[in-house]
Design a protein around this nucleic acid. Structure first.
Length: 637
RNA sequence: GCUGGAGUAACUCAGUUGGUAGAGUACAUCACUCGUAAUGAUGAAGUCGAGAGUUCAAAUCUCUUCUCCAGCUCCA
């Protein structure tokens, strides 16, 4: 007999070898029906696991993250089984659960079409109905390789060879006629997957390597309750309404035309956003001890050779010839910044020097990656280079992190941090990279920041701390970044005169906060679903006369608001008030002022808020005070 | 760049087996002069992404190309 400690420290006795699902069954039908996986002494196991010793056991359901992942992963196996039944000679790759749902990669010769998805779903329905037990067994390395070779599964053979080299056990799963190599956790049987939906079919490279063959990937999602699936699908639909590409057109923020793929045009409303953001940015940077410069967009080849961009970044650069000489359009602002630094002598007394530049850069991004304002070919970085002594590094990094915190908190953003380390094609010595990476890591630890490490994703000149923001569909985009650079000061022979009267090499930090104004506006748009806080709203107030008779009075009100720098519009269209309100509401204008006989008589305006509806009437000065306060506090409503 | 899907009026979309185009919104004109999310009527608007081919005839079939969408790879 063994003692199993359950939740709430209840101890129950079972025969040795009892399976997890049998324990769950003994506790009650509710838990048994809902179980997805389990934790045995804190370690994730699946519900088939035989318990051999005393242990602490926690049954996980779909409500637990790990249970959810098990549920989705099992669904991916069911999908793979269906695909194998429907197509000939399917070569299986991998089929993991992801943050939301799952995918499976196949090599099926021919492409999978959306119509195929329907057929696959039907076949999956059958497999669920068959309620096949999911059995687990292990094979020796030789058996495993032979097994997959016989079945003509080269990708599985490759995976097995990898597992063997790592000394891992080779676990297989069988459900009916379908067998897959898989070490993850699984549900008890295929019948436990209740509601699923295949979402899309795309291509994906084997092992994420663009030099390797492209496989067909199917994404899907599943839930134990139909309502959950419906809610999920509805949420996706809702999220699409927040898409900045859709809102960007509806709110007349920006446009991108066939005449310039990846090169956005900013319309009047978008320019208000830009200018407001930049104005705010300038104010805060001035306060934080930055100065601002501007460097040219086109500079000659010598500069880019010297900076290393010509050798490491040329594929992404637009080049041109001027008077038979090679020039490049800047993809980054730093080399220009180097020249500014070098243009005079610097004393240790001047350091740290914080030099900012709203710099317009151009990069030739691959056509397939362009995405509204999020990924473009020309964008403005809110760049700054900080030149400092070695012992200023940590406090400067901390300052930048604080500034990023401040900016993001103004917009109510949540973000995740990544530390990106040395990439393959990079400059400098191992020692320099270690030193720089350590400095960034120390700053993160000293400031109690949670972060993940993104191996090999640094810039070619140095490691970086990246700040990622989410869009409406929870795709994350890198915005802020802090990059330590030991290369450029070296290459440009930057110096400052120390206390000792001798030349020393400054350390340089690149950093951006918005990342790019364009991407940031995209993120902002999705974050607020186009209903920007008052201080950012392209139009802050619209005056709506009830009828033509009040147009003049309305115009007077508009003018008095404009005089106070409140962005006020006027709708003198000859339409019923409901129509004008509807239009203003669709344009997401924060305040509407309704002007008619009643207001004229009482010398007031009727105020309607985008968010809260009719606020009743008040006199104009009170309304102005309300608006000015909301603008000043940058309130998010 | 790769894989798949899609391009029809400013926007959202119909358009049967090939017979050269429609709806709603928006826009314009007129009437109504209106009280918190859509008043009515009329009108203008399209080389059917571009180029080539097949055909008596192409939005529709074939090829090439451009752009967009999803994902991969890459990135602020």
């Amino acid at each position: 007999m063994i003692n199993i400690t359950l939740k709430n420290n209840v101890v129950k006795q079972f025969n040795k070898g009892v399976k997890v699902f049998e324990v769950a069954k003994s506790i009650g039908p509710g838990l048994y029906n809902d179980m997805c996986a389990a934790k045995m002494d804190g370690k994730l196991v699946d519900v088939q696991t035989e318990l051999q010793n005393d242990c602490r056991l926690e049954i996980l359901t779909f409500a637990d993250k790990a249970g959810q992942q098990t549920y989705w992963h099992t669904t991916s196996h069911i999908m793979a089984q269906a695909v194998c039944r429907l197509f000939k000679d399917v070569k299986l790759a991998i089929g993991p659960a992801i943050d939301e749902g799952f995918y499976y990669d196949f090599d099926i010769g021919s492409p999978i079409t959306p119509q195929d998805l329907v057929k696959i779903e039907e076949e999956m329905q059958k497999i669920v109905k068959e309620d096949l037990q999911i059995e687990r067994y292990s094979l020796t390395p030789e058996e495993a390789i032979r097994f997959m070779r016989e079945r003509n599964q080269p990708y599985k053979v490759e995976l097995i060879e990898d597992l063997i080299s790592k000394g891992a056990t080779l676990t297989f799963r069988q459900q009916g006629e379908f067998v897959d190599l898989c070490g993850g956790t699984h549900l008890l049987s295929t019948g436990r997957v209740k509601n699923f939906k295949l979402l899309s079919c795309t291509g994906a490279y084997w092992r994420g390597d663009s030099k390797k063959p492209m496989l067909q990937r199917i994404y899907g999602i599943s839930f134990p309750k139909k309502q959950m699936l419906d809610e999920y699908l509805e949420r996706i639909e809702e999220a699409k309404k927040r898409d900045h590409r859709k809102l960007g057109r509806e709110l007349e923020l920006y446009g991108i035309f066939d005449e310039g793929p990846g090169f956005p045009f900013f319309f009047a409303n978008g320019m208000v956003l830009r200018n407001t953001l930049e104005e705010f940015w300038r104010k805060k940077h001035k306060e934080a001890g930055y100065v601002e410069i501007k460097t040219p967009i086109i500079l000659n080849k010598d500069l880019w050779l010297r900076s290393g961009h010509w050798d490491h970044y040329k594929n992404n650069m637009y080049t041109t010839k001027i008077d038979e000489e090679d020039y490049a359009i800047k993809p980054m602002n730093c080399p220009g910044g180097m020249l500014v630094y070098k243009s005079k002598m610097h004393s240790y007394r001047d350091l740290p020097e914080r030099v900012a530049e709203l710099g317009l850069v151009h990069r030739h991004e691959l056509s397939g990656v362009l995405h509204g304002l999020m990924r473009v070919r020309c964008f403005t970085q809110d760049d700054a280079h900080i030149f400092m002594t070695e012992n200023q590094v940590e406090s400067e990094i901390a300052n930048v992190m604080k500034l990023i915190d401040y900016f993001y908190s103004i917009f109510g953003f949540k973000y995740s941090i990544e530390l990106s380390t040395r990439p393959e094609n990079s400059m400098g010595t191992d020692e320099q990279w270690e030193k720089a990476t350590e400095a960034l890591q120390n700053a993160l630890v000293a400031n109690n920041r949670e972060y993940t490490i993104n191996e090999g994703d640094g810039a070619f000149y140095g490691p970086k701390i990246d700040f990622h923001l989410e869009d409406s569909l929870k795709r994350t985009w890198q915005c802020g970044t802090i990059q330590l650079d030991f290369q450029l000061p070296e290459r440009f022979d930057l110096t400052y005169i120390g206390e000792d009267g001798l030349k020393h090499r400054p350390i340089m930090l690149h950093r951006v906060i918005f990342g790019s104004i364009e991407r940031f506006i995209g993120i902002l748009t999705e974050h607020f679903a186009g209903a920007f806080p008052l201080w950012l709203s392209p139009v802050q107030v619209i005056v709506l006369p009830i009828s033509e008779a009040f147009s003049q009075e309305a115009e007077k009100i508009q003018l008095s608001l404009k005089k106070l720098n409140i962005r006020a519009d006027l709708d003198t269209k000859i339409e019923i008030i409901g129509y004008k309100i509807r239009n203003a509401q669709i344009k997401k204008i924060p305040y509407m002022l309704i002007v008619g006989q009643k207001e004229l008589d009482t010398n007031t305006v009727s105020v309607r808020s985008r968010a809260d509806g009719d606020l009743g009437s008040m006199n104009l000065d009170d309304f102005i005070a309300l608006v000015e306060k909301e603008i000043a506090t940058k309130e998010i409503k």
